[in-house]
Design a protein around this nucleic acid. Structure first.
Lengths: 333, 333
DNA sequence: CTTTTATACGTAAACGTTTACTCTAATTTT
DNA sequence: AAAATTAGAGTAAACGTTTACGTATAAAAG
């Protein structure tokens, strides 16, 4: 049988209140009894029951994290940051991957509510109205990572538009002036549209005429989307010398496609990615990309959440800096 | 204020016992009261408190998962399988990444104990004696994924030795007879040594003389390890025509290195990986590899655990089948 | 030496459930 | 019609903590 505080109390011949006080290092006991109790604890191998604690304290020291897909490289890097920070501050994290669309997110939200988590993180997960209503009712702090919303919920992310601007401008500065852009879905108001706009703006500011046929809008940010886009793009604009991809996966897809088509990167075609996933480094040639501080995003997000938890004050949203990681997928013109 | 079962009882003018019975769909109430109570529940927006439930039921509907590194592509694929299965069976999963070695695993184990998780999964995480002692005391079911131990703990994994055997033999059947092997650390009794032995055995069975200088033992299974091994291997054995890598990351590292050295894959050098991560597909050229059913491993593992939880019987360990995924990193000789 | 104050505890209620037990009234059996 | 059974409910204890409150003893103050 697993020992309880009662067993400890009995064994040490004190009341459970005293044991509890010692456990929580409050005042109200002598050094002698403390030692006695500590001994009993060790002897019985007692471990406090966090469930009982949670019941009375109304705090579970647990947060919930919602991801569209835990297994994407993006998510897992963020998750690591979250888990690190949470654990450092004495909290556990329950992961929920909401992948298979539909009502799954709502179900998870309810679950987290029943479990009485102390806070919730939406990571790259859209905050819909129906979700917002639920979290409002739950009355727990919420943080958005790598996304934002029309509601007043603190978020931490990079500035997608500016990052995309930087990427584009980097290419321009390298002497490219006929540049293609492979965007994700532009219905995506967070990671889709802003990156396209950053691209457009960079061209505009650098006095380069935008050509509509240089833009291809894909249905997603995945490898396949990039792979399948290159030939289409090249058909319409055979003369482009550089490509800005809205994600590293897209960029790697392009790399693959270029290889198949016998196009040399970076000699004949330059390409810049977005995210700085591990694969960017592993690609052939290693991919120049604009880095999101993924781990940092997770870490900061969790820290913001826990800060809200402790202090009760609302966290201020943060924009984390992006930066260009120069590797070998870009050549000077 | 968040409503409790008491509020529901009062609102519906019944006792809390009745509400509880209805909530748990037991017997002992009329259809009429049921409707009345259901109404009150909806009206108050009541959600049962899983913490209180956990306290009395001694079940938290939560399992803990230990990973050396959540953010590795391997882990995240497994995690997805775990999470899927667990959720389908009404359980949540707490992730713990034990990366930064040392006593962190032990700390996590204690945490999971305090939180009273119903079961624990060790995923690619070594089961040391000190861990074993703790989980023994905890008296919860444990499952090992992608690893095994000297203790009587059910596991689910592929047969590393045979998988490596298959990979090697595949190369042999393609006409290669001077084959290199880039192993992980052979101190690793799970993923290191067995794969090396599978390699040796395959050579032996196919009547190929083993050359010690064809084997390079690395300190890890990462990209860097592969990248930095190729030139070393080629120095000692310039004539090899094929390489078996102990992981996809290693293989991709080799690919990169080969590219830099101007060695054409697969024309001059064939290479087969291990794992079938997403990067295998994304590599240039796409990597032929022996696939571990990662998602499946996670799923089956979680299912085994939950089955133990429900039935109380010990699960039988499982070896899941591996298979060769043919892509384009291997040529016929 | 009495009175006050601080220290070191113990008692019991509370957290939100589940469930064994009890009770009443209705229904069925004999 | 009386007895036995059953359906529909309520009461209260239990789960393992924390904590407000009470109390006895010892130390400090007068």
């Amino acid at each position: 049988m697993i020992p309880t505080i009662k067993d400890v109390a009995k064994h040490a011949d004190v009341s459970i209140a005293t044991v509890s006080r010692i456990l929580n290092s409050q005042t109200g006991y002598s050094e002698k009894t403390k030692q006695k109790v500590l001994n009993s604890i060790k002897e019985l191998g007692y471990q406090p029951n966090a469930v009982a604690r949670g019941l009375i304290n109304k705090k579970t020291q647990t947060i919930g994290v919602l991801f569209p897909d835990v297994s994407s490289m993006l998510s897992s890097a963020i998750l690591k940051g979250i888990e690190d920070a949470a654990h450092n501050l004495g909290h556990s994290v329950i992961v929920c991957h909401t992948a298979s669309r539909g009502k799954r997110t709502l179900k998870y939200l309810q679950l987290l509510r029943e479990k009485r988590v102390d806070g919730i993180i939406f990571a790259s997960e859209r905050m819909l109205e129906e979700y917002y209503e639920v979290v409002q009712q739950m009355d727990v702090p919420v943080i958005l990572i790598s996304t934002e919303s029309s509601y007043d919920i603190p978020f931490v992310k990079v500035d997608d538009k500016r990052a995309s601007y930087s990427a584009t401008e980097y290419l321009v500065k390298k002497g490219h002036c006929n540049i293609g852009f492979i965007s994700g879905p532009i219905e995506d108001k967070i990671a889709g549209l802003p990156r396209l706009e950053g691209f457009k703006q960079a061209l505009y500011k650098n006095g380069i005429q935008l050509r509509q046929q240089n833009i291809v809008v894909t249905k997603g940010f995945g490898y396949e989307h990039g792979r399948d886009s290159l030939s289409f793009l090249l058909e319409r604009s055979p003369d482009i010398t550089g490509i800005v991809a809205a994600s590293d996966e897209i960029a790697v897809g392009v790399l693959t496609s270029a290889y198949k088509l016998g196009i040399k990167v970076p000699d004949q075609l330059s390409i810049i990615g977005y995210d700085n996933l591990k694969i960017a480094e592993m690609a052939i040639p290693p991919l120049t990309t604009v880095a999101q501080p993924l781990y940092q995003l997770g870490k900061e997000g969790a820290e913001m959440l826990l800060h809200m938890l402790i202090t009760g004050e609302k966290a201020k949203s943060k924009i984390l800096p992006h930066r260009i990681i120069e590797r070998q997928s870009i050549s000077k013109r």
